[in-house]
Simulated scan of single mutants.
Amino acid sequence: MTDAQSVVRDALPEPAWMEGRGGQPEGYCHRQMLDAVFYVTDNGIEWRAMPVDFPAWDRVYAFFRRWRKQGLAGELHDRLRGRVRTTEGRDREPSAGIIDSQSVKAAASVPAVSRGYDGGKKVNGRRRHVITDSLGLLLMVWVTAADVTDRQAARAMLPVLRTRFRKITLVWADGGYTGCLVTWAKGKLQLTLQIVKRSDDMTGFVVLPRRWLVERSLGWLMRSRRLVRDFEASRFQRGGSAASSPAARASASSTRAITRRSNTASATPSPARIRSASAWRASTAARAAVSRSSSKPITDATGYLPIAENELNVRTLPRRHRHHA
């Protein structure tokens, strides 16, 4: 994590000992721990093969396992997703989603109780079922055996999605979610499941509306070597789980991608931020004009003269404050 991406530290959950709720102070910085988890996920190495530049591998694994069980990793991911959506001019809580799945091969260490054979993709392993928002940001991950169909996983995922995101009323899906699932979601969950199909007269590669967003998100996940093949030996039910170690790996990879996107979004303002900045400049110019016409300078609510950021001269600051400008 670079210095520019480390601005996500204010989105990290606060430890109990820092809020006076007891507990022993932590011995390692959260940035070091997150860097170690991201390194393992991106490079696909074993925990014991972690370089000496990071903390001890057992401490990092204990940190990752504790955050996964207590839901802190998901909380960090949700905060960063809300920040990116706000930067892009969207509401923090989405109102629509896209659902899809991806089958990956499983290593020999994966137990037979949590793996299966996908006859359509000819893959023996596990399947990741993901739901993203209209920006392609991850909302939910559900890892099952590869022989679990899309409709079976959607029956378990959609009620949880409806509970976590009350504003979502529309979900786009492919042809694998057709059938009675559409009427069940409409009647039980008041959720519209819209199927985006590929027409029969299409030939070659065609970008389908809405579905390309979740396909791009699945491609982002495959950039992490730890997710190209499922190595997690944790046991869970064949029906899947959102709190399993494979799902936490996918969330960690998505968190890494969101930190990069958050850094890019802060460097490239959205149209909403540009309009807000233009209104601020116009207000500052009007106040400066009134200040020049009057004998007494007009200050803002803090008591300081309004000044544009590009008008700040570092050489006018005291020497001890120049490195903060």
Rank of each mutant, 00 (worst) to 15 (best):
R281L: 11
Y177P: 06
E232V: 03
F63R: 03
L193M: 09
S291A: 11
E232D: 15
S244C: 12
A4N: 14
F236G: 04
Y61E: 14
V60K: 02
G82A: 13
P111K: 08
R256T: 00
A49F: 04
R9W: 01
D3L: 13
R281E: 05
K186H: 14
D174G: 09
I168R: 02
T41H: 01
D100N: 05
V182S: 04
S283P: 00
R198H: 06
W172Q: 00
R225T: 01
G82L: 00
D100E: 07
S234L: 06
P271T: 02
D100Q: 01
S253A: 15
R21C: 01
A233H: 10
R9K: 09
Q102T: 01
T163S: 15
L137G: 04
D174V: 00
I98H: 03
G89S: 08
Y117P: 02
S103F: 00
D200K: 15
R83D: 12
D91A: 15
M157G: 02
S276W: 05
R216G: 03
K167H: 13
T87N: 13
A4M: 08
I195Y: 07
F38T: 00
T268H: 13
Q237L: 14
D91W: 07
Q24T: 13
R275G: 05
A242G: 08
R281F: 00
R322P: 01
G175I: 05
G97F: 00
V290N: 12
Q152L: 03
L305V: 11
L227W: 06
A11F: 09
M202C: 08
R66Y: 01
E75H: 05
H77N: 10
R256L: 15
V171R: 07
S234W: 03
V60L: 05
R322S: 04
G74I: 05
T41D: 10
Q194D: 14
N43H: 15
G120F: 04
T87Y: 10
Y28V: 09
S294E: 12
L80Q: 04
W220M: 07
K69G: 02
A146G: 09
R66P: 02
S278E: 14
D201Q: 11
L139G: 02
T302G: 14
G136N: 06
R235F: 04
P209R: 14
L221M: 11
L181P: 02
H323F: 11
R225Q: 11
Q32S: 15
S283M: 12
I307G: 07
K122D: 12
Y28W: 13
R92I: 08
N313I: 06
S262I: 07
A325Q: 08
T41S: 10
G204Y: 08
K296C: 09
G239A: 12
Q32A: 15
R238T: 08
T192N: 14
T316R: 14
T299P: 09
S278V: 09
W184T: 08
V104N: 01
E14P: 00
L181W: 08
R260G: 07
P209W: 11
A62P: 03
I98M: 09
L170D: 07
M222C: 07
D42N: 10
D133M: 06
S253K: 04
R292T: 11
S253D: 11
P318R: 14
D300H: 06
R115C: 05
K186N: 14
R211Y: 02
D150T: 03
L12R: 01
L317F: 10
R249D: 13
A112D: 14
